[in-house]
């Protein structure tokens, strides 16, 4: 009978469409996970890095001896890791910092890690309580060797390969 066929088509069609929706949704997640190149945040043209190396999509470099991530080893954020790319990492309590510190002894804009040709450089941004690399206070941009401890207030941070 015609109407029975229509009813069956509607019934299975609805269930099929339901799962097509889910498959589309899952595909969206997969596209997110595969880590397509991130669109660069809006920047004034003059400030854009000009070297061809920096213009390539940000991707953690896996080379021996070059830090690929930043690990918080002590303090309220212990266990947090940040993957290092080619962009500078800002540390502080200000909530637009790359790593937002929940530490009473940290300043809003406390310190900054900047990638250079020879590795990462730590720079204090005029914090109230200072930034320490190992046991020395950082007063000028200082290169950070792998595994040495950066201390900000009660937070300790290490760069790891």
């Amino acid at each position: 009978m015609g109407s029975a066929l229509v009813v069956a088509v509607v019934k299975y069609g609805l269930l099929g469409l339901l799962w097509v929706f889910i498959l589309l949704a899952v595909r969206t997640i997969r596209a997110d996970l595969s880590g397509r190149p991130a669109a660069p945040p809006p920047q004034p043209k003059a400030m854009r890095p000009t070297s061809t190396k920096a213009a390539r999509p940000a991707k953690p470099v896996k080379r021996k001896g070059v830090p690929s991530k930043l690990v918080v080893t002590e303090g309220a954020l212990r266990g947090t890791t940040v993957t290092l790319a080619d962009a500078p990492v800002t540390l502080g309590r200000a909530h637009d910092s790359t790593l937002v510190l929940t530490d009473d002894y940290a300043s809003n804009r406390h310190a900054r890690l900047v990638p250079t040709d020879s590795g990462w450089t730590l720079e204090d941004l005029g914090s109230t309580n200072g930034t320490y690399l190992g046991s020395t206070k950082v007063s000028r941009p200082t290169p950070v060797p792998l595994g040495s401890v950066i201390r900000i207030g009660k937070t300790e941070i290490e760069l790891r390969a």
Partner: peptide
């Protein structure tokens, strides 16, 4: 709170995908 903070995560807004899926959901309803 051990969490992977990924500042370089997907920065695409994907609003177009949202609109398409919304219209699909409405059509399904």
């Amino acid at each position: 709170m051990s969490a992977l903070t990924a500042p370089q995560g997907p920065a695409r807004s994907r609003r177009g995908t949202e609109l398409t899926l919304l219209l699909f959901a409405t059509a399904l309803a």
